[in-house]
Amino acid sequence: MNEDSLQHPKLERQPMEPRALKSIILSTITIVCAVTACIPLFSVLIMLLYRGGKRLTFQLFYTLPPGAFDAPGVGGFGHAILGTAFMVGIAGLISVPFGILAAIYLAELGPHHKVSEIARFCAKTMTGLPSIIAGVFAYAMVVLLMGHYSAWAGGIALSLLMIPTVMLTAEEAIKMVPNPMREAAYGMGCTPTQSLIKIILPVAMPSIITGVVLAVARAAGETAPLLFTALFSESWLAPNNPTASLAVLIYNWSSSPYQNLIELAWAASLILVVLVFFLNIISRAVGGKTKL
């Protein structure tokens, strides 16, 4: 018998054999896990569309928040959309030049310097910095100095979170530029700066923009750095005063006793998520391929 099984082994798949069975069970568990992990995303999206979509009107974009005794269905948060745009804009204006200039040095001008190694390490460390720490820092730096909450402080807090992302992605982008292009530029008598500005940066630009857009998307959704730097307000944007933002609005109104405000918080979430997803899609389209 043994002889026979050696000469004619069972070559077909044996699903009930213990080892194969174990493999099948583990595969099933894995599939269940993967599907389960997708549920939160779809649950969030469906709830946003269902609860936020009910309140989605054009009125939201140009009106101020309702008072406590206003009729349900009245009011909007145009000021918060404007506030978010303004503060993310400031953060971008600070972090994009900062990040790209530092990245140029890291990738091109002095990649193996001691300074670069330390700066790269610092940037990596800063990506893991809790966002609320950026808020505490901006509070200590700007709010205490100016004596009041302001959109500027909020923008500076957000820029702290954007700088490392912009810097590290830009560094990778510049490193990806093929070497012969540099050599050709130098061969034509370019100074390093000329080769950077005329050859390397334009080639690396799509990837750099990807990084910037992703950083903007992240900053637009950040709440913690704005809580005690920009605070919140119920009136239109005034950069020297407390300023509303979509994220803080959602936080403040989520625990509100008024149904109207809770509905508006859902609508604000919907707008915020659509904005963030839109930015993510743009970054992928510009980057040309899916990033790891």
Partner: peptide, 22 residues
Amino acid sequence: KNIIELLAAIPSVVYGLWGIYV
């Protein structure tokens, strides 16, 4: 992979709101 990446893109405050009401 994209779905998992989008999980990271949703702002935490939206997760908070979802957590409270769902």
